[in-house]
Amino acid sequence: MPVSASYRWSPFCVDGVTTVAVKTLKENAAEVEKKDLLSELEVMKSLDPHVNVVRFLGCCTDKDPIFVIIEYVNRGKLQTYLRNSRAERHYGNTHGKSNILTSGDLTSFMYQVAKGMDYLTSRGIIHRDLAARNILITDDHTCKVADFGFARDVVTSKIYERKSEGKLPIRWMATESLYDNIFSVKSDIWSFGILMWEIVTLGSTPYPGISAADVMRKVRDGYRLEKPEHCRRELYNIMYYCWSSDSNERPTFLEVVQMLDKLLHTEMDYIELERFPDHNYYNIVNLSGEKL
């Protein structure tokens, strides 16, 4: 499940039948974190069930600690799942059924996340922290957008200006978010393009070998993540489209859904995993001041 330093997740059984996940604050959580959890709760309460969005089940807010109850998604974070798949691909699987992912699986993950985000967009929700670490995955490869701690309901203005600071997901953020604190559906689209790159590289950290400060400068100056050598141009073009400097030139989530659907209906492997260059990619788990 998604975890931050101030949250605690607990899966447990209700009536011996349904396992759920409970999100609550740790005892040392700051007031701003309580505010974020309540904001996340309000966003989730406003949503109807959608197969590609983690489902809100209930809450307890009449006294501290606050509990937010959601569906339990048994495979956990997509980022971890992808990284484990890379290890399995490298070392092989000698015990039971293989879980090695295919090009079709990976393209389907992108398509499902785009479907979930298209639904959230239709409800006036900006996620603001879209990344593989905030997507959950089930045993049957259903992907669910999760972790709405930074999400905002901006149904009136369609744009949100961040006022508070904290660890930022710099490598996933659009130029206007990095430099002007402006978040919109189109900044979520930028993040989705980065998430596509994460999926293609089986959970690698974006901009490997480049510091956060250099990422910010280089992206502002027009630098973009390069096409992975095992990724076909047709798929990379969708990512690149998401990274237009002019936010108005980026696609909508509905357009991304349609583009990915078209790729899924061909016989082509757009991610040539037999050519996966494992040595080129890195899993960075901790950098000071950065959200990874």
Score class of each variant (00 low, 15 high):
Y81V: 01
G149S: 04
N93S: 04
A5D: 14
Y281E: 09
I170D: 02
L130E: 08
W9Y: 12
H265V: 03
S157V: 09
S39M: 06
E272W: 03
L41N: 02
K186L: 03
S10G: 02
K23S: 08
S177T: 13
M110E: 09
N181G: 05
A132V: 10
T252E: 03
K23T: 02
L195G: 01
Q79S: 11
T24C: 15
S39P: 07
N181Q: 08
N181V: 00
Y236R: 14
S288L: 04
S10H: 13
T201Q: 14
D261V: 00
L47Q: 04
S122R: 00
E176Q: 11
K186F: 03
S187W: 00
S122E: 14
P277G: 04
A151T: 09
A132G: 03
Y111W: 15
C59D: 10
A30W: 00
N283G: 04
F150G: 15
Y282I: 15
K186N: 04
T201H: 10
G289Q: 03
A5Q: 12
I199Y: 01
M1H: 11
R220E: 10
V73N: 12
K218G: 04
S4D: 13
L202I: 02
K63A: 14
I70F: 02
V155N: 11
W172R: 11
C143D: 04
L292P: 04
D139Q: 11
G203Q: 11
L254F: 11
H265M: 06
N93Q: 04
R133V: 00
A213K: 13
D278G: 09
K291S: 08
S108F: 03
Y81I: 07
V113Y: 05
D48K: 12
I125R: 00
P228W: 15
D214T: 09
T201P: 09
N181Y: 05
G222Q: 10
W190Y: 10
R75E: 10
E161G: 06
S108H: 05
T142L: 04
C143W: 10
C143F: 12
T80I: 09
L202T: 03
R217Q: 15
S46G: 12
D64M: 14
N248V: 08
S85I: 00
Y281G: 05
P65F: 02
L47K: 07
H265R: 05
R123E: 10
E33V: 01
M259L: 06
V53I: 09
H90C: 14
N181H: 10
T18Q: 15
R275K: 11
N181D: 12
I126H: 01
E176D: 04
Q258R: 08
R152Y: 12
K291A: 12
L168M: 07
A213N: 04
N28W: 11
C231K: 14
R250Y: 14
S184I: 08
F56K: 10
S191F: 06
I66L: 13
H90Y: 06
L57A: 10
V257G: 07
H95C: 10
A114S: 14
